[in-house]
């Protein structure tokens, strides 16, 4: 999709009638993200337990560190034992785990996938590059801090992190969720303008709708 596809245009239908298409209004939601308050105490505790026991992951691998997510799927590290399952679409997962090196272009698309996810969602950032840029800290094309663009719950250091440390990171995420501290979604909604401005700072020719759901 290019920027041109988002412009208003006249379309001729199969019967010859002409009508106007405004993709931003017709195909995408224009609603801003909202802050969702957590439920009552015990009930929320139960729900948080369920959420922590059923982490559905979208592997958003934009760099070399993503290679370490593949061994994690294998029988040797048994992610299922740690209640981690992979899902193929962003709509159905809760945890985008962002891969180590963050080239600016795919990383600006990351928020799109993040916004398509529903409900309490948690970001796990793999690798040193997501923390301070790692070995690519002075590159013209990699971001330095992922938390300027997405609310990150857990950082996993390492270049690259081994699958064991990934598992440790996910265990940490689970304790965070059970303690009720996994409110990244509300954080994102509260500071939406700030995050969006930072994302737009990377991609000057913003060719996406502002809200991706």
């Amino acid at each position: 999709m290019t920027k041109k596809d988002l412009d208003k245009r006249k379309v001729t239908g199969p019967d010859g009638e002409k009508f106007e298409v405004d993709p931003l209004r017709d195909y995408f939601c224009q609603e801003r993200p909202r802050v969702h308050d957590p439920a009552r105490r015990i009930w929320e505790g139960f729900l948080n337990w369920a959420r922590s026991e059923s982490l559905w992951i979208l592997g958003y691998g934009t760099g070399c560190g993503a290679i370490e997510m593949r061994p994690l799927m294998t029988p040797r590290f048994t992610p299922n034992k740690h209640r981690i399952q992979w899902r193929p679409t962003p709509w159905q997962s809760n945890v985008p785990s962002s891969a180590a090196i963050c080239p600016s272009r795919p990383q600006a698309r990351g928020p799109g996938s993040y916004e398509q996810m529903q409900g309490p969602k948690y970001v796990v950032a793999l690798g040193s590059c997501t923390i301070n840029g790692g070995m690519y800290w002075d590159s013209y094309n990699t971001i330095n801090r992922l938390d300027k663009y997405l609310p990150v719950d857990v950082y996993i250091t390492g270049c690259m992190p081994r699958p064991e440390s990934l598992l440790a990171g996910f265990e940490k995420l689970k304790t965070l969720i059970r303690e009720g501290r996994g409110e990244g979604q509300n954080l994102y909604a509260k500071h939406f303008d700030e995050y969006k401005a930072n994302q737009k700072k990377i991609i000057r020719d913003w060719d996406m709708p502002d809200y991706n759901w």
Binding site: G133, W137, T142, N144, R145, K148, N198, K201, I202
Partner: peptide, 11 residues
């Protein structure tokens, strides 16, 4: 390096 510092929020 200067560009990165200007654009990408160095930690």
């Amino acid at each position: 390096k200067k560009y990165s510092e200007k654009t990408y929020f160095p930690r």
